[in-house]
Design a protein around this nucleic acid. Sequence first.
RNA 1: GGUCCCGUAGCUCAGCUGGAUAGAGCAACAGCCUUCUAAGCUGUGGGUCGCGCGUUCGAAUCGCGCCGGGAUCACCA
Length: 596
Amino acid sequence: MIEQKLLEKACTAIHQLYEQKVSQDLIGLEKTKREIIGDYTLVVFPLLKLSHKSPEATAQEIGNYLSQSMPEIAEFNVIKGFLNLILSDKFWLDFLKKNAGKSQFGFRKLRPDRPVVLEFSSPNTNKPLHLGHIRNNLLGHSLSEILKANGFKVIKVNLVNDRGIHICKSMLAYQKWGNNETPFAAGIKGDHLIGKYYVLFNKHFRDEIHSLMEKGLTEEEAEKQAPLIIEAQEILRKWEARDNGTVDLWRKMNGWVYDGFNKTYQNLGISFDKIYYESNTYLMGKELIMEGLEREMLIKKEDGSIWADLRNEGLDEKLLLRSDGTSVYMTQDIGTAQLRYDDFRPSSMIYVVGNEQNYHFDVLQRILKKLGKEYASHIYHLSYGMVELPQGKMKSREGTVVDADDLMDEMFKTAESTTRELGKADELPEEESRQLFRTIGLGALKYFILKVDPKKNMLFDPKESIDFNGNTGPFIQYTFARIQSLLRKAMSSGYAKERVQGSLHTSLLPLEKETIKKLYLFPEIVKQAGVEMSPAIIANYVYDLAKGFNQFYQEIPVLKEENKEKFVLRLTLVSFTGEVIQKSMNLLGIDVPPKM
RNA sequence: GGUCCCGUAGCUCAGCUGGAUAGAGCAACAGCCUUCUAAGCUGUGGGUCGCGCGUUCGAAUCGCGCCGGGAUCACCA
């Protein structure tokens, strides 16, 4: 990387010129602002106490030294104490020649380390997936691709919350009002069918609460005494006691949900290497807790409940097993962590889970540490923000959710109508058109979500459909399609054969250089996205690249260029840009179409 | 109340490991298709970077204090 070399040389320069040792962190090196001529800018202000000269003089002296000792530097200028370095066209051309067409460009070789276990999705089995889950799934999938690009072996795992009071509510409602309905007979996806009964339960539950409150109970009392919740709790007890009928129903209904989830996952284009079920992992959790109790890492209260005492860490006590011996959410997460560790001996375990669970993961990590698990310090919670609607947070029970399947269907339809309006599907065969609408619709949706910093809450307004113009997935896909079209034409012209042999000795136009500089950034962007676990960094980068390329494309002819060197340069630049756009989009889990 | 997160153009978002006149897109307005795909390109207008104080040669960026919004603190998940 040229930045590193510039920094080292700058240190040497200071040492030579001012006889002072200097560490690299004191030197500010950054990309030159767009309005100013230059490629890299060295900020000299922090160096003035070493040079004892004016900013201008210092910049001038360092500039002289650097341009003499580095052939890559063609010239430099000094503006207001900023030293702007201009690299030679040859440097950029060499970079282009060396990396264009290289399939590994920007990606690290596989490290010998142990794998990374990445958990995402983690749905409850009582309702279908919604937009919040989409964000989770897209982040998880993209992150796995980004980590792979950074040389990690990644194991994608899903933890299905298949047991607990929530599924019992759906089961109860189904028993009462289901008439043995099946997804097949009803003609709806299994997860939606179960969701229907979950909503039904809550509707009747609310009714019961209201009538109890009219009889003088407080809301809190009513919520505990309503017959429906008592019946649901009874189902949970039967389930834990392995009651045959209950377990059979549970199995049947969960099976429907899995079929539904699998369709949604497939539609979204995501997959897992291993699926854990809470109904299995909570037992391991119990075991670990009993073990921790024996070794006096945990405490037991008089009523028999078991707790972790975190008060000397500034937190409170945390319940791990109820007085009746049943487990809570934390119980199974402890078990799951251990199972994962035993299964894969990972170097780290990443959890993609919403920021509403920040406290939970903080506590989980501390408890595992308390239990003496060394892997506790290698747990990372990728805490992402909520997707909010204009009226606030999505709430399943209040019906204010954007359903994942509906949203995808809507995206496909919008993609279709927009594409047809533009007349772009006219010559495509039916099957290809269908594929294209999917690619574009998903591209718009995925990019819309992934371009936002994962940590931040984001807003989705269902009334305003997701855009296809401007800073969007389709914009980038379109740029890629134009590139492919141009390359196809070049191939048929016969010139293309000379592409690789071209010596590329020519000068660069500003728009050419701008694009090359953006391509040069790609490896660093991939690395940064990995370190920060942020697909948004890739998304914003590839938009910038596509935007810049479109300016180039608009202003500078490629196929009509008669100078062979320039033709070869531009064609190389075009195909390389296509490669990097494709790689970037794939890191986001987005496909790019050959035509659109 | 304790802890944590957020507050940048009318709207959605970048920029935040301190650096030069704070950037995109959408929306509005004005241009560009006998030239490689106009889902594109160019231009105009639009900002007390929530407020105040501090650190610094230099603060949207760091620190402190307010104001506003959100999350969380369950024998829920």
